[in-house]
């Protein structure tokens, strides 16, 4: 009885779990640093990280918003461009054999390594950062969407053919809605990659943003400020991921992963 209640609580309160685990870790962290007298340059305690943030909160928030903007714009570009490319690849044998082949080939290169190239091509600044973020985010979106567009039940297509459905109807009434769950799983990976790309972009072509803050703080061996940026990045990444997740739940109530078991 008690066990099943505990199990129910754990199922229903996943977010509560996360909060409790983070809280517990923070307390352990604080205690460990104090007990073992770890030097702040190696591992600052959470209290010092909080103090560093409160010392100049607007510097961090301003830079966080900048990174958020880069991530958001890069993500939006990736989704629009990615979906257009995916539809093109599925509709055209030529694009499938050229563009898709090229994308798959490039995808196997560790793309972060290409970031310095963009600095050479586009210089330092926002356009390089955007380019790096788009380059990372667009791949999972294109590839997932292509798979989703293709994975239509052949009998559904037979039915459409037998009733002389137009090409337009087949794309917009069958293929596209059928691909939405795949698009969303691509977008969940894509939003995280866009954030990674924005940070890498700030590392190599920075000037502003949390990635740039991490880099400058590291240069000054100010480990505490590095941690402030990392914590903010973690919070941002989590919120962005769940934003896509919530959007999926709203847009695709029919999708199997959110289905309620039939009573």
């Amino acid at each position: 009885m008690k066990n099943s209640l505990a199990a129910k609580l754990m199922r229903d309160n996943r977010s509560l779990d996360i909060v409790l685990v983070l809280l517990g870790t923070t307390i352990l962290w604080e205690l460990a640093v104090r007990i073992f007298h770890a030097p702040a340059i190696i591992l600052p305690p959470p209290s010092a990280i909080w103090a560093a943030f409160m010392h100049s909160p607007w510097v961090f928030i301003r830079n966080m918003l900048y990174t958020l903007m880069t991530t958001g714009i890069a993500f939006a570009i990736s989704v629009v461009l990615g979906v257009i490319m995916a539809v093109g690849i599925v509709q055209s044998k030529f694009l499938e054999r050229t563009l898709y082949t090229l994308l798959i080939a490039i995808n196997s290169v560790p793309k972060v390594a290409l970031a310095p190239l963009f600095v050479i091509w586009l210089g330092t600044g926002a356009s390089s950062q955007l380019a790096v973020a788009v380059m990372l985010a667009i791949f999972p979106i294109v590839i997932n969407t292509v798979l989703g567009l293709r994975s239509v039940d052949p009998d559904m297509l037979n039915l459409a053919k037998a009733t002389r459905a137009s090409k337009f109807d087949i794309i917009y009434k069958i293929r596209v809605p059928n691909a939405l769950p795949s698009l969303f799983s691509g977008m969940k990976v894509g939003i995280s990659f866009a954030l990674v790309g924005a940070i890498v972009g700030e590392f190599v072509a920075g000037g502003r943003g949390l990635g740039f803050l991490v880099l400058t703080a590291q240069g000054q061996f100010d480990t505490t400020r590095v941690f402030v940026s990392l914590v903010l990045l973690g919070i941002m990444g989590t919120i962005l991921f769940y934003a896509v997740d919530v959007a999926e739940r709203i847009a695709l109530p029919w999708h199997s992963s959110q289905r309620q078991p039939n009573a």
């Binding site: 039940d153 009998d155 559904m156 037979n158 039915l159 459409a160 037998a162 009733t163 002389r164 459905a165 137009s166 109807d169 009434k173 069958i174 809605p177 059928n178 939405l180 695709l252 029919w254 999708h255 199997s256």
Partner: peptide, 27 residues
């Protein structure tokens, strides 16, 4: 009209909208 072994109903449409799909496809 054709019926296959799998019902191939579209998950995102209601039952009524699934039935009306036939009319939509036929124009």
């Amino acid at each position: 009209g054709v019926v296959f072994q799998r019902d191939v109903l579209l998950d995102w449409r209601t039952i009524l909208d699934n039935v009306l799909l036939q009319a939509e496809f036929l124009g």
